[in-house]
Design a binder for these strands. Structure first.
Length: 786
DNA sequence: ATACATACC
DNA sequence: TACTGGTATGTAT
C-alpha cells in the first residue's frame, strides 16, 4: 500500500494533488479525469498557490495521523463504552425522525451560465464559462465535458478547453432572474428558504395536501413554472427533510427531479450506498479524513462506525455523522433567519506597499459601511482578513463596546489591526462586521447600558468616597473620551498605565495633560452575571497578562529592556540589595521556614503547592522591587542605568544557573511565565506609579487565594491614600471596600457599603457571601469574613 | 473572544 | 500573467 502510493507520487505526481474540481459532478460523466487532473497539476505546479495547497495537504495528513493514533490508543473497554453511548444516541435521534413534512430542493442548472446564454443566445451549444482568467464561477454543460467547472481558475480551464468562451459575471442579471424564480417558489411555499441566488428549499407538505397532488407532480409543475417565468431549467429533489432533498436534487441534474418518498425504509435504502461526499457539509477534507482514518465512504458506514466516531469527534460532529447515517435532517422552517455577518474582500497583486494596502482598507471600509447602512446594521466585532503573498490566511479581530457602522469607525479600527501586522506582503484584504445590535432575540441590545468605565466616568458612582478624589477634566466625561476608552482598550490601556514610556510619536488619545489622575482599567468587559460565578472561571477576559505581552512587544527597546530586567530579577531571585528577602533568599527554598511557613509574612503553604509558592515568592519580590524602585525614584533612572543594572543581574544569574533548584530562564518576552506571575508583576508595576485612582479589574484572578489575600492586604497598605476600584468575583477581594456594587447581567442591582448590604440577609451580596462561605467552609479561612 | 479551518455556491 | 467573494459554522485555545 505504502509502496504503491509512493510510486504514484514519483511516476504520476498529479494523482496526489487533490483539488475540489476533480470530483464527480453533474455533467462530468464522460470526462477523462486522469487527463484533467494531470493538466490541473501541470498548470499549478510550483506556484505559490500550489505550495500552499501542499502545506494544507500536509496539515490534513497530520490530522489524519493524529486521529489514527488516537484510534489505536483506545482500549477495548473504551470502545465498548463509546459504542453504548452511540447506540443510545442513535435511538434518541431515531425518535426525532419526522416523516410528516415534504421538502423540495430546487437548484437552477448552471445558473449564471444559463442566464448569460439567455441574454446572448449565440452562446448556446458552445463551451462557456462565467468568470475570468483568475476564477470561474460557473461553466455550462458543454464546457463541463472538458473538465471545466466552477471554482476552477480560468487559465486552467482554457488549457482544458482552448475554445472556451469567457463571460464576465454580472450579478445584477443573476439577481434579477433569481427574483423571478423566487416568485415561482413563493407560490408553493410562502416561507421558502433561499439558500443562494439559484437554490431554494420549499416545504410543499401543504401544497400537496391542499391540491391533492403528489410531490412529484408539484415538482414538475414548479419546474415548468420556473421555466415559463425565466426560460431557465432547474432540477428538483423531494425528500422528508432538507438534507435529503438537497442530495436528491442533484441526482437527475440537469432539468430533472428525484423523489424520495416519506418512508423510513426508502430513506435507509437510499442512504445506505450513498457516498458521504454527496451530503452537504461533508467536503473534501472530511471525506478524506473519514475515508483514511475509518474507511468510511458511504453514509451507512457512519452507523457501523458510530462508536469510534463518538470517541474521536465532538458531540456535535458525532451527532451530525449519525444523522447522516440515519438520513435525518431538519424538517422545520426557522421563523426568522438573521444575518450574522457582513463582509467584503478584494484580491490584488501581492504587495507590501503600506500606502497601497491602506488605500485598499479605506475602500473596503467605505463599501462595507455603505452595505451596513443599506441594511441598517451596526456591529461590534470587526475582523480583518489577510491573505499573504504565500496564500496563508490570517484574521485579526476586535470586539468593541460600541456598535459601529460608519466608514470612519470601521477604518479607524481596521487600520489599527492592519498596522499591527506590518510589515507584511498581502494579496488580499477583507473586512467583516459581526455581532450586530439586533442579533440573538431580534431585540436590539441596549448600547446605553453603562459599562464600568462609562459608569465611573459619567459620574454616576460619585456619591460616596469617590467625589473626593475623582476630578475629571471636562473632556474626559464627554462622549468622545468614553468612546476612546471603551473601544481602544488593549492599546489605550497601557498608554494610560505606562504613559511615562509612551512613544511620543504615538497619537495621544487620552486627555490627561497633567498626568494627575490616572485610570487603570484592565478589563472593560461588562460584568458576568453573578450567579454561579463563584465556582465558574471568570468569563471576563483578563487583559493583564496580555498587557505585559503587548508592552514587551510594542515598546521601544529601553522599555523592553526594563521589563526584562524585572523579569530576570524576579524569576532568578537575584538580590537587589542586602535586605531580608535577597540576602536570606538566594534560592526559593530558604523563603520557607521548616519548608512550610513563609519567612516574611508567616503564611503557611505546604511544599506540594509548587506553583502557589512560586507566586507567593514572586509577590515578596515584587514588593522588594517596588521598594527599590521608589527609593531610587524610577523616573530619574535613565534607560542607560537600567542597562547597567541588567548586565549586573545577568552575570549573576549565569552563576545561579548552575544551582540545582534554579528556576527556568525567563524566555523572550517572558513567555514562559505563569499567568499569575504576569499578573503579579503587572500589579507591582502599577503600584509603583502611586496613582490616585486605581482600577483593578480581576487583577488577581490567576493567583491562588492565599497569595491573593496577602496581595489584597498589601494593596490596601499601599493605596491608603488612593481611590481603588476593584472588580472581582472573589468575595475576600471586595469584602472590605467602602462601597460595593453588585452587578447582575451587566446591571448594577445593589449599591451600598458591605456592612449595609450584609444587614439584609436576602440581598444579592449577602447571598454571594454566604455561598462563598459555604463553598469555602471545608477549606482554609484566611480572609476573616464576618 | 479570537484564530483558523471547512464548507457551500 | 493568472487560483474569487460572501456567509455560516465548527474546532481549538
Amino acid at each position: 500500500m505504502a509502496e504503491s502510493e509512493s510510486s504514484e507520487v514519483t511516476s504520476r505526481p498529479w494523482q496526489s494533488y487533490h483539488t475540489v474540481y476533480t470530483n464527480a459532478k453533474a455533467g462530468m460523466e464522460g470526462v477523462d479525469k486522469e487527463k484533467v487532473q494531470r493538466i490541473v497539476y501541470e498548470m499549478s505546479k510550483g506556484s505559490k498557490y500550489f505550495e500552499n495547497e501542499e502545506r494544507k495537504e500536509a496539515f490534513i495528513k497530520q490530522k489524519i495521523e493524529n486521529m489514527r493514533a488516537r484510534c489505536a490508543k483506545l482500549t477495548a473497554a473504551e470502545i465498548s463504552h463509546y459504542q453504548k453511548v452511540a447506540d443510545k444516541r442513535i435511538l434518541e435521534l431515531e425518535a426525532t425522525r419526522d416523516l410528516t413534512r415534504i421538502w423540495l430542493h430546487v437548484d437552477m442548472d448552471a445558473f449564471y451560465a444559463a442566464v448569460e446564454t439567455l441574454s446572448n443566445p449565440s452562446l448556446k451549444g458552445k463551451p462557456m464559462a462565467v468568470g475570468g482568467m483568475s476564477m470561474i464561477s460557473t461553466a455550462n454543460y458543454e464546457a463541463r465535458k472538458f473538465g471545466v467547472r466552477a471554482a476552477m481558475p480560468g487559465f486552467i480551464a482554457r488549457k482544458l478547453c482552448p475554445q472556451l468562451i469567457f463571460v464576465p459575471t454580472d450579478f445584477k442579471k443573476y439577481t434579477y432572474y433569481s427574483d423571478l424564480t423566487r416568485k415561482v417558489f413563493q407560490k408553493y411555499d410562502a416561507n421558502f428558504m433561499a439558500a443562494s441566488l439559484d437554490e431554494g428549499y420549499l416545504d410543499i407538505t401543504n401544497v400537496c395536501k391542499e391540491r391533492g397532488m403528489t410531490s412529484g407532480e408539484v415538482a414538475e409543475e414548479l419546474r415548468k413554472g420556473v421555466y415559463e417565468e425565466t426560460g431557465l431549467t432547474c432540477s428538483a429533489g423531494v425528500a422528508p427533510n432538507r438534507l435529503l432533498a438537497k442530495v436528491c436534487s442533484d441526482i437527475n441534474k440537469p432539468n430533472g427531479q428525484f423523489i424520495l418518498p416519506n418512508d423510513r425504509m426508502a430513506v435507509m435504502t437510499f442512504i445506505s450506498s450513498l457516498p458521504i461526499r454527496k451530503i452537504g457539509g461533508i467536503g473534501k477534507v472530511t471525506e478524506h479524513l473519514l475515508r483514511d482514518v475509518f474507511g468510511i465512504t458511504t453514509c451507512e458506514e457512519m452507523l457501523q462506525k458510530s462508536g469510534i466516531l463518538g470517541a474521536l469527534f465532538s458531540p456535535s460532529s458525532a451527532d451530525f455523522f449519525l444523522c447522516v447515517g440515519l438520513g435525518l435532517g431538519s424538517t422545520n422552517t426557522p421563523q426568522v433567519r438573521l444575518r450574522k455577518s457582513m463582509s467584503n474582500e478584494r484580491t490584488f497583486l501581492a504587495t507590501g506597499d503600506e500606502a497601497f494596502l491602506y488605500h485598499k482598507l479605506v475602500d473596503l471600509a467605505e463599501m462595507l459601511s455603505a452595505d451596513m447602512k443599506k441594511e441598517a446594521l451596526c456591529g461590534r466585532t470587526l475582523t480583518l482578513k489577510m491573505k499573504t503573498a504565500s496564500f496563508e490566511i490570517r484574521t485579526r479581530a476586535v470586539t468593541l463596546q460600541k456598535y459601529i457602522c460608519s466608514s470612519e469607525d470601521i477604518l479607524k479600527h481596521a487600520s489599527k489591526l492592519l498596522k499591527a501586522e506590518l510589515p507584511i506582503s498581502l494579496r488580499l484584504i477583507g473586512l467583516r462586521m459581526s455581532q450586530f445590535n439586533e442579533d440573538k432575540d431580534g431585540t436590539p441590545s441596549d448600547p446605553t447600558q453603562k459599562t464600568l468605565s462609562n459608569f465611573i466616568v459619567s459620574g454616576v458612582a460619585t456619591g460616596r468616597n469617590m467625589d473626593d478624589h475623582i476630578s475629571f477634566d471636562s473632556d474626559l466625561s464627554d462622549d468622545h473620551f468614553i468612546t476612546e476608552l471603551k473601544t481602544d482598550l488593549p492599546i489605550d490601556n497601557h498608554e494610560i498605565c505606562y504613559n511615562d514610556f509612551r512613544d511620543p510619536l504615538d497619537s495621544n488619545e487620552v486627555s490627561d495633560p497633567n498626568n494627575s489622575n490616572c485610570l487603570l482599567i484592565y478589563n472593560n468587559d461588562e460584568m458576568e452575571k453573578n450567579d454561579g460565578s463563584l465556582n465558574s472561571k471568570s468569563k471576563a477576559k483578563v487583559n493583564t497578562p496580555e498587557m505585559i505581552g503587548h508592552t514587551l512587544k510594542s515598546y521601544e527597546a529601553e522599555a523592553s529592556q526594563l521589563v526584562k530586567i524585572d523579569l530576570d530579577t524576579m524569576n532568578k531571585r537575584t538580590n537587589l540589595s542586602d535586605d531580608a528577602v535577597s540576602s536570606s533568599n538566594q534560592n526559593k527554598q530558604s523563603l520557607w521556614v521548616d519548608d512550610y511557613k513563609c519567612l516574611l509574612c508567616g503564611i503557611e503553604m505546604p511544599s506540594s503547592f509548587v506553583e502557589e509558592r512560586q507566586e507567593h515568592s514572586d509577590f515578596h519580590l515584587a514588593e522588594r522591587l517596588q521598594k527599590e524602585e521608589s527609593d531610587s525614584n524610577p523616573r530619574s533612572l535613565t534607560p542607560k542605568k537600567r542597562f547597567i543594572q541588567k548586565d549586573h543581574i545577568t552575570s549573576q544569574s549565569k552563576r545561579k544557573k548552575k544551582h540545582k533548584s534554579s528556576p527556568a530562564d525567563v524566555a523572550e518576552d517572558g513567555e514562559n511565565w505563569s499567568m499569575g506571575q504576569r499578573q503579579l508583576v503587572c500589579l507591582a508595576r502599577v503600584l509603583l506609579q502611586r496613582r490616585k485612582i486605581l482600577v483593578l479589574d480581576e487583577a488577581t484572578t490567576l493567583v491562588d487565594t492565599t497569595t491573593d489575600n496577602v496581595i489584597q492586604w498589601r494593596i490596601r497598605e499601599e493605596t491608603s491614600r488612593c481611590t481603588v476600584i476593584r472588580v472581582a468575583h472573589r468575595i475576600p477581594t471586595i469584602i472590605d471596600n467602602d462601597l460595593v456594587l453588585v452587578l447582575d447581567e451587566g446591571k448594577v442591582v445593589e449599591y451600598d457599603s458591605p456592612t449595609e448590604l450584609l444587614k439584609n440577609n436576602s440581598s444579592a451580596f449577602s447571598k454571594l457571601v454566604m455561598e462563598f462561605k459555604r463553598r469555602s467552609s471545608s477549606g482554609n479561612n484566611h480572609w476573616g469574613l464576618p
